[in-house]
């Protein structure tokens, strides 16, 4: 049920009942499909998209480009595993092109992130080099533009 995934990807707060009504399916079937997606790891979680810039919380994110030497037998997997197990690592991608891994890190301060790169990422076996880019401002993330929702300006009309 691709439509179910599309709907939840757009609005994870839709209830199985609402989805059932909107797709004219049985609510039980929707629940079962969601359970199955969750158990097979198709649906991995449901989260709020937070703009931390609008809160008091100290927060910085950075994109780190890593060049590595793939290990014999296990290629990139072993190195990837070492990286993604750190909770500070928000995303990890294996990339085509000039470098191998893109790591998205989140920390409280610039120093904390720099420290993490120097003491945790750089020393991993097989890592040849790192390049750290700090995020200055987020405009859009996961399809959402970071701005206050606009007031409905549509006039009442018939």
């Amino acid at each position: 049920m691709d439509i179910l995934l599309e709907m939840l990807e757009k609005d994870a707060r839709l209830t199985p009942e609402q989805i059932a009504i909107m797709t004219q399916k049985d609510e039980g079937d929707i629940k079962a499909a969601i359970d199955s997606y969750e158990s097979r790891g198709v649906i991995l979680g449901y989260k709020a998209l937070v703009n931390w810039d609008k809160t008091e919380r100290e927060y910085i994110s950075a994109i780190i480009e890593l060049k590595v030497t793939p290990q014999r037998d296990r290629g990139f997997e072993k190195i990837a595993e070492k990286i993604y197990n750190y909770p500070e690592v928000k995303s990890l991608y294996l990339m085509s092109g000039a470098y191998d891994f893109q790591v998205i890190l989140e920390g409280k301060t610039l120093r904390e992130v720099a420290q993490f790169v120097a003491s945790k990422l750089a020393p991993i076996d097989g890592v040849i080099s790192t390049a750290t880019h700090f995020v200055l401002k987020k405009y859009k993330d996961n399809g959402c533009v970071f701005k206050v929702p606009e007031k409905d300006e549509r006039i009442n009309s018939i």
Binding site: D152, R154, I155, I158
Partner: peptide, 25 residues
Amino acid sequence: SGIRKFFDILDDMDDVTSLTVGQPD
């Protein structure tokens, strides 16, 4: 249009949940 009066009242009210709009969102 007779509905104008109704819409004028509506425009002056706060906190109304409107389902009146005749155009796409």
